[in-house]
Design a protein around this nucleic acid. Sequence first.
DNA 1: GTTAGCACTCTTAAACAGCGAGTGCTAAAT
DNA 2: ATTTAGCACTCGCTGTTTAAGAGTGCTAAC
Lengths: 341, 341
Amino acid sequence: MLTERQLFILRVLIDDYIKHVEPVGSRTISKREDITYSPATIRNELADLEDLGFLEKTHTSSGRIPSEKGYRFYVDHLLPSLSMKESEIGHSELLFTEKVQEAEALFDQSAKILSDLTNYTSVVLGPNALDMKLKHMQIIPISSQVAVAIFVTNTGHVENRQIVLPDTIEPSELEKLVNILNERLAGVRLIELNTRIQKELSAVFKKHLKDYQNMGVFLDQLLLWSKKEKLFYGGKTNMLSQPEFRDLDKVRPLLDFLETRDLMEKLVSSTEKGLTIRIGTENEHEAMKNCSVINASYTMHGKHIGTISLIGPTRMEYQKVISLLDSLSKEMTNRLNDFSN
Amino acid sequence: MLTERQLFILRVLIDDYIKHVEPVGSRTISKREDITYSPATIRNELADLEDLGFLEKTHTSSGRIPSEKGYRFYVDHLLPSLSMKESEIGHSELLFTEKVQEAEALFDQSAKILSDLTNYTSVVLGPNALDMKLKHMQIIPISSQVAVAIFVTNTGHVENRQIVLPDTIEPSELEKLVNILNERLAGVRLIELNTRIQKELSAVFKKHLKDYQNMGVFLDQLLLWSKKEKLFYGGKTNMLSQPEFRDLDKVRPLLDFLETRDLMEKLVSSTEKGLTIRIGTENEHEAMKNCSVINASYTMHGKHIGTISLIGPTRMEYQKVISLLDSLSKEMTNRLNDFSN
DNA sequence: GTTAGCACTCTTAAACAGCGAGTGCTAAAT
DNA sequence: ATTTAGCACTCGCTGTTTAAGAGTGCTAAC
């Protein structure tokens, strides 16, 4: 268990390091007004904190920097009480200068705002369109073989894909199919359409459609979804201005990581509501080992549907950033729910 | 006018610099087997070529590097005759490993292939959907006030947007409107829909629709397009591995440039068919002053509809890159036209 | 328990020397 | 009239040395 003094010194040190990005020595700490101990005393405490794994040295005679464990402890126990954050709320309303009409624009702007304000990189993971409910679908022939299938969701989102029409299918049959789907499956989540058909509609199909056999293959083609979350970026190059990445060989993997869709999706996805902080290797990817990722979820009708995230160096301004992310995600939630009333 | 020998030396020097990215001195050139002159002679020629503006020195006693004018001359007059390029054609067919079904996938893959092969950054500027012809349109209400308007083009592309329904409009009127549009405007380019209506359909509207006044505003909302070209990137971070950009302060503006949509659109747009090369300041943007941009256009039914571009350092492997881009753009054209038969 | 003092470590920056690649010029060779 | 050998000179780069500065850990005294 840490003593009060150790807690205090640890916090002061991390605060200082976050601010100045340079190893902090006993002298620097002792210079603070609210410190009454001598450098020598502090040195002893620092040595202890290092033994406990909260601090590290860059070389034998350097000052200390926080270890990953140190940051974790800082975030969990030392963050100046978050009540301050209330003072920041309300700002974010002002931030949306342009009126945003559609969800996509909201996500895009949120990412930009967040990265501008923090100078880190931000990412908004859009809602998975496949979780939205079917409002209406339609198949529009382009040529004799090719058609476009269109699915409109209750949120006004449009999914579309090109499909190949089997020769065997007759236009009137196709029309019947579409009618049945619209009548029976409105309100069902896109992703569930196929299973719902399997379970509930085979009888209906048999009754109304001639060539039920071939139809099965066609339906699979029609309703085979691939992931459809969208990513919105802000400040992709902000990493370059972080002192710890002022080295090409260090940023390169990072920037490459940012460009890799599936890695980013994984990084930024979170099933939990609220705020998650992952520090350094907690991100479980080499390229992110010197970064922290903060995910905040936004909701619709109380349900988690996506996240807004911030990616920065492990030495992040956690305090500022957490409150910002918190209020911004709430603001997003509000606006999002305003759309659909 | 340059002598044969000057031409030869200039080409050898630029070839060497492109390969090794280091100032080239008289000794290096004289070491080549096919060079019969002594370093001293070459020094004299180099001095002349420098006076003529084709070469530069990095400092008083350094070797020479090509100037922008030098590259321009090289590209215009010294490029080993392009007949070689034929040998490369055919490769590109092999490159598309996955079967691509939709145009978007084709663009995306083309950009990736090109950047992988060259280690530069590539961009495909997609066709402007608004130049495609209307196949079918539809308005699907989401709530009492909001609806989604959907436009399907002859190429199978789907444009959609949310619109606000005026209270004054009746569902039956809306249906009539959509019917008229579909009957009268199929085959018209999206971008032209509005003017076509103004010119030709006002009479029809007056006849069939009750509230023609309000309809005008609504139509404007419905048919007010904003630019819709899409950009597909490949190798965004490849710039980082170019020796001339091995410096954060030099790459940063470049990467920022790549992320700025409208700048990129301008950079990569070209109205001309065929191949365009812009070297250094010819790109007319500070951030691109050390880059060359090569645009190749791809066509559909013989019409220029978009470009595939390569962005690299002014010291590019022009020869290789030009032939690649040439064959790749042709390959794209072929596949694109295969889609729509 | 705290702190002053001191020897020791490591990093950083500056100063300096020497090497190598390259140039331009002059004078001799072709 | 070209071409080339020779030479003095310029830069940039690398490695070494040096000195300063920041910091530590330990010991002994307070």
